[in-house]
Design a protein around this nucleic acid. Structure first.
Lengths: 211, 211
DNA sequence: ATAAAATTCAAACATACGTTTTAAACACTA
DNA sequence: TAGTGTTTAAAACGTATGTTTGAATTTTAT
């Protein structure tokens, strides 16, 4: 059996460095140095840098996707509110390898990178691997927003995704900024509790203004 | 006097390539080839790749910042609604070198990159160059949301920014996706008209749920 | 028209990257 | 314990990057 430490230390280092600097800006030498392993270990254990990137996502998303799928089995058989659906996401995220608040920020930053620096291979990997569960969740969103047109629903989901990913991607520096500017004492949990009503209100907005 | 074309063609090529692939993934050889100029021209006209990145932003932001500042002079002396403040942003954006809808998407993608791939030098450049105008706008936001705590206001502004930047960054592929999935015929203007009520509703949300 | 300045060009430079190679060290089984 | 497959190690490979150079060329101004 493989020495479990090496591959895992590579994943830990890669995850931290990717979320700080992005994929292209992080070299295998950065990663292996931080992990304390030999440079060639990445290619040996993961085959290539691309596969390593996918593995970093899979370590979070596979447990999450499984747990989320179970929760969907329950949710699908009851009536829900927007807040409940949002809460399901957050709760499941925090119960699948993301218990620690700081890991949450790291994961969201990675998710943001997957969109902004999406290198093709990542998008394909993510949609082919986790697309089905996402589709099931969307079906529940449809159920609770019957008054929205498909178009409105489509865009509002992406607005929500954007607000969440963007904010959580920089949550550390934003929290620091908030604490400095406002003299307050915030943390990521409070940000999430601020985010939920914002998203729910945006999703259910009845305004029909034109610009 | 310098041959004006070269520097401008470099900016055009750089802007397009940056918005497609990001900063690090775009090489000077990519840029100069696309621009049809010599490789050394970038270093000659801009000094370095970093300075070129800043120049790409400045070409949009300096005209915008000036025009926005003028509009703020007006706005500051009247009572406004959230929708009006949002509209001011959009209208000014579309009147300062961003007339064409496709340029709008490019600019927003660059803005998203400035956050996600923010290389330090860019953040410093942007805040030192355009921070003051932004602060004036924030003051107007404060005025129209007296019922919000500073903390709520702070976070909701960033949620709004996230929804806008994230969505507009991928507006082309999202519009294509919407048109394909929904069999509809959308464009960026319609996306903006969908975005505005979403943002306004989120900003003014009265919900105080805790997760 | 001529001198000076500004710009373009091809080539080379130094550096960093992902990957491959070859051999040594290790772990496990027969 | 001997042997076999697995993992680590150091070094080198080939490629791509940002930048610099110095001569050729074009533009500007006298």
């Amino acid at each position: 059996m493989a020495q479990k430490d090496t591959a895992e230390r590579i994943l830990d280092a890669a995850e931290a460095l990717f979320s700080e600097k992005g994929f292209a800006e992080t070299s295998l030498r950065n990663i292996t140095t931080k992990a304390g392993v030999n440079l060639a270990a990445v290619n040996y254990h993961f085959g290539s840098k691309k596969s390593l990137i996918q593995a970093v996502f899979a370590r979070y998303l596979t447990p999450f996707s499984n747990q989320f799928s179970e929760q969907l089995d329950v949710i699908e058989q009851q009536q829900n509110t927007p807040e409940q659906l949002l809460k399901l996401l957050v709760v499941t995220l925090t119960k699948s390898g993301l218990e620690k608040p700081d890991k949450f920020g790291v994961f969201m930053r990675l998710l943001g990178l997957a969109y902004s620096q999406g290198q093709g291979h990542l998008r394909k990997f993510l949609t082919s691997e986790y697309g089905e569960v996402f589709a099931r969740y969307m079906k529940e969103v449809n159920r609770i927003t019957p008054e929205l047109t498909p178009k409105e629903r489509f865009w509002r989901i992406h607005f929500m995704l954007g607000a969440a990913v963007f904010t959580m991607s920089s949550v550390d520096s934003l929290v620091a900024m908030a604490n400095h500017d406002l003299g307050s004492q915030s943390d990521i949990k409070e940000v999430i509790s601020q985010l939920m009503p914002f998203l729910a209100s945006g999703l259910m907005a009845t305004d029909t203004n034109e610009i």
